[in-house]
């Protein structure tokens, strides 16, 4: 087990290194550089100024040298400086990452709390009316675009029945108690979480239902019934546990999105998250912000894949790591 984990961690580090170079190189291939942006925005930039600025930002060097400078900077613990916001990357990214984590985490927990029981319920009533209703909602969740559901939620719950804020991360007030701040923050999360959950609930319901139907049709379920085990024990210990394997994969991958952000939801709800930040950074050639965010996202995918592999063993004792 330890050997497996160490081996996988080493592989993960190698992949992160390779992907970082690949992402950096791809960004350098995009048309224009930060100085081009400045020239486009300001007609009075002279060729001498453009040359000076390129040298200052190291843009006159080949891509591999720039990558090396960036990688050594990151290795030394310095995340660099955002040329869009004119502040250190850690300052702007840290806060946005936390906000995104809260939003995506809340949406994930809420989605699972709703979707897993629904999926199990639908599987146990396969072909019945309840199954059709759950499926209808699941497909609606998968099919409806997130920007549409977000705007509908804003119109219904912020404009026509104004019970939740239309957007933002929190109210801007300097005289709230910690409890009021907490409630205020929670209120601002309700609509984005609902919007974000709508799609994932549909997906998780479909996966849970399919996995549960397959698990419940196995011989060991019949054997368990024949042994006279209770319905709940059959359902949880034999059915649901075996249905967990595909669910672990999809949930582990969903975990990796906790730090990569949801651009559309964050933009529509003016939520100060990392998705919007990364999008803007790429648009504005702000390499330092975009690369750090990429790296976090890539690392999360790889690490959560590793976690999923380890969890398979927990869910199914037949899986070993020797």
């Amino acid at each position: 087990m330890t050997g497996f984990v160490l081996r996988r961690l080493f592989q993960t580090l190698v992949v992160i290194g390779l992907l970082s170079f690949f992402c950096y190189y791809l960004m350098t291939l995009m048309p224009g550089d930060p100085i081009d942006e400045m020239i486009a925005a300001n007609p009075n930039v002279t060729s001498e100024d453009a040359e000076r600025l390129r040298q200052l930002h190291g843009l006159d060097q080949p891509a591999y040298k720039r990558y090396w400078n960036w990688a050594t900077m990151i290795a030394s613990g310095d995340l660099g400086y955002s040329r869009t916001y004119r502040v250190p990357v850690s300052e702007i990214l840290g806060k946005s990452l936390l906000n995104t984590f809260v939003l995506a985490g809340a949406a994930l927990v809420f989605s699972l709390l709703v979707a897993v029981p629904l999926g199990v319920w639908a599987a146990l009533h396969k072909g019945e009316r309840v199954d059709y209703v759950v499926n209808l909602f699941a497909f609606a969740g998968i099919s409806v675009p997130s920007f549409w559901i977000a705007i509908v939620l804003i119109l219904v719950f912020a404009v026509y029945v104004p019970i939740f804020p239309a957007g933002g991360t929190s109210s801007i007030s300097f005289d709230m108690t910690p409890w009021e701040s907490f409630v205020d923050r929670a209120r601002h999360l309700v609509l984005p979480v609902l919007s974000l959950s709508f799609l994932s609930i549909g997906t998780y319901v479909r996966y849970t239902r399919a996995a549960m139907i397959e698990a419940m049709s196995n011989d060991y379920i019949r054997t368990a019934r024949a042994k006279g085990l209770s319905r709940d024990r059959i359902l949880i210990m034999h059915g649901f546990r075996n249905a967990l394997i595909p669910l672990i994969t999809i949930v582990a991958l969903s975990f990796s999105t906790l730090f990569s952000g949801a651009i559309i939801t964050e933009t529509v709800f003016a939520y100060d998250g990392v998705g919007r930040l990364v999008f803007l950074s790429i648009q504005r050639n702000d390499f330092n912000v975009a690369m750090v965010a990429f790296m976090i996202s890539v690392s999360m995918v790889l690490v959560m894949n590793l976690v999923a592999d380890l969890l398979y063993g927990v869910a199914d004792p037949r899986i070993t790591y020797s």
Binding site: I154, A158, A166, G167, V268, A270
Partner: peptide, 15 residues
């Protein structure tokens, strides 16, 4: 409020 489409909703809701 980066999304221009929600500006009006924010205005009407008092945000």
């Amino acid at each position: 409020i980066p999304n221009t489409g929600t500006l009006e909703a924010n205005l009407r809701s008092g945000s």
